[in-house]
Design a protein around this nucleic acid. Structure first.
Lengths: 117, 117
DNA sequence: GAGATATATATTGTGACGCTATGCATTGGG
DNA sequence: CCCAATGCATAGCGTCACAATATATATCTC
């Protein structure tokens, strides 16, 4: 499966990270691999993209994090806060609203919900 | 209905213009208003956004255009070419592929196709 | 018929943001 | 013992949508 154009991903990357964290706390590298799998090898979020997002989430108070070095290899674990869960719901709602909007705009093409197939 | 975040629109604006033109040739201002209506007053594409896109479409050979001044008010009409229709199909396909991908990523939220409601 | 508003196209400046490149450090396999 | 994979992080760059602005005509209101 081909990769999705970067321009399309813009705006939904943060949502994807939040959603991935809704399955339990994770560290950066794990978020990357989880996203890669849940998207069926489509979303390959680069480190240079992911970490600035995580830092923003932390700054906004949407995730709380703590370092762990027990295994020798240091890891920074991220976990959704209550505000983060609220934010996730908000962004997910907007996303589906956007999809519905595009569905209407693309209606003349006769592309009737290809994703329900 | 609130407006969609600009960051989300990024990447799909060109697709929306192509789709709007699939309903027959139109001039800039008409594209704006058609899009406004087909999106149920959600997509308000600004002139500063639309015209650069139209110029790109023309440059790529996806639309052919001609000036008309019969009515006194000059208008530049845009019409999809064969290559443009092909491009439209290609971009629409990618869009739905993207939506399907996000659906999987957001699956853990239990948001089962809110748009099919 | 004067002024306001809607129509109509176009350019420029700016800021947001994802990507590439780079750097540093640890761990495990060949 | 080297190299790939793991793991976090920042700097610089390019793209691109939007705000602001400019120009001009048509229509509506009073």
């Amino acid at each position: 499966m081909d990769a999705i154009k970067p321009e399309l991903l813009r705006g939904s990357l943060e949502l994807m990270v939040l959603s991935t964290l809704s399955g339990g706390k994770k560290y950066g590298y794990l978020i990357q691999s989880t996203l890669w799998e849940s998207s069926r090898e489509t979303i390959e979020m680069k480190a240079g993209t992911l970490y600035p997002i995580l830092h923003k989430l932390e700054k906004e108070g949407w995730v709380k994090c703590h370092w762990e070095s027990d295994t020798g290899r240091r890891r920074k674990w991220y976990e959704l806060t209550a505000a983060g869960k609220k934010q996730l719901k908000s962004q997910a709602d907007e996303w589906w609203r956007y999809v519905e909007c595009l569905r209407r705009v693309l209606a003349p093409l006769g592309e009737l919900s290809p994703q329900t197939a």
